[in-house]
Amino acid sequence: MSSLLDPEFLRRLARVRLLVRRRFAGSAGGARRSTRKGQSVEMADHRPYSPGDDVRRIDWNAYARLEELILRLYVAEEDLVVYLLLDTSASMGFGDPPKLDVAKRLAAALAYVGLSGSERVGVVPFGAGIGTPMQPTRGRRRIGTVLKHLDALEARGETDLQRAVDELIARRTRPGLVLVLSDLLDPGGYQRSLDRLIAERHEPVIFHVLDREELDPTPGGDFNFVDSERGARVEVSLDQRTVDAYRRRVQLFLEGAEAYAKKRGLSYVRAGADVSIEDALLAYSRAA
């Protein structure tokens, strides 16, 4: 078992279930409602009968009233594809603990939960583009593969979520739950990328991974801050006014991300900093 998951943590994960706000069409029967009408016991809709339809699904009560053949449609229960879109850019390598570690641990937990729920779970690391992905897989026993894949990931390169999303969509992936684990510090922004996912019938969930020093830097000192991804240099004197200005800017950034998620009906969960992985997962599950 990888260090990303310990037994006690796994026990607590039993209470967590992946939250899906939309319905997706699966390729095999699963625990999830599908956008396709199927053979489950839960009726979804009616439609006029067409020759060739299964006559067993004709709603005779409706015919008695309407004198028209109406077919009952049932919700199909299919498996869900979960994409762990994991930010592995260089900025994720900073923090105490590094944000990438937090993100990997969170991704492992989410993969475990997903596999335990008969979902198909794939790992899509991204930086300037998509790295080496792990194709969606099913079954709890596959957790080892997922963890091994996660363990191999390292923080490097720039962040380009847009490009990563474009590549993901270009692979003609099945619409599914896209769990975005990132610090969202993308010079190109994250909104358009997530909008694109939504447009392609994916359901993004934002796991905003943060570091405490990033949220609340300690005043004092004069520095040349060097951007780990772009190499940009910024002269900063950490006097109180500058720190206050930075905090205001961070607050705006967090509030902006939260407001965006709310506006799009997405789940938004903060992780790292003072929010433990368990708390983040519980917050995610409570959102259901």
Binding site: A90, S91, M92, G93, F94, G95, K99, D183, L185, P187, D211, E214, G221, D222, F223, N224, F225, V226, D227, S228, E229, R230, A232, R233, V234, E235, V236, S237, R241, T242, A245, Y246, R248, R249, V250, F253
Partner: peptide, 22 residues
């Protein structure tokens, strides 16, 4: 002419924005 210490951080995006504000 202040002597500054180089420090690599994850991203300077928010710092740049904060300094623009100042």
């Amino acid at each position: 002419k202040r002597r500054r210490v180089d420090r690599v951080i994850g991203s300077t995006l928010l710092w740049e924005a904060a300094l623009r504000d100042l």
